[in-house]
């Protein structure tokens, strides 16, 4: 199976482009850096190119079959959604949220600074 693929590369006829808008170009760059680290499992069958245009993260996908394009796209969108949600943990936002929690009467009581000993 693998040998058939390497003989002649199949044409990547199926393409699509996603444009994802962010508040700032820095945010788009952050997501680009976080998502361009991992290699595609079979780059000769499906791959993606990422770039930033203004406030947009632009992702261009290519695949040898339509089904593969869909799965690559779907895996990528899951990761984008996850990366987007991490903006809620930006320092200022998180500190604010932690402080709000602290001031609530039902704030969880914790026992930090404990050294575990068995």
């Amino acid at each position: 199976m693998a040998s058939q693929r390497t003989e002649e590369p199949m044409p990547m006829d199926h393409e699509c482009t996603l444009r994802i808008k962010y508040d700032t170009t820095e945010q788009a760059h952050m997501v680009l850096r976080a998502l361009s680290v991992d290699r595609e499992l079979a780059p000769e069958r499906a791959n993606k190119e990422l770039r930033v245009e203004g406030n947009f993260l632009v992702a261009h996908f290519k695949a040898v079959e339509f089904r593969l394009l869909r799965t690559t796209l779907s895996a990528f969108t899951e990761m984008v959604l996850l990366a987007n949600r991490t903006f809620d943990l930006a320092t200022d936002k998180l500190i604010q949220e932690l402080q709000d929690e602290e001031h609530r009467p039902t704030a969880a009581t914790a026992t930090p600074q404990q050294k575990p000993r068995m």
Binding site: M30, A34, D38, L82, T86, F87
Partner: peptide, 11 residues
């Protein structure tokens, strides 16, 4: 790992 890469940049 994706979360970690984002947080490292954010923080």
């Amino acid at each position: 790992a994706v979360v970690v890469r984002m947080l490292a940049q954010l923080w």
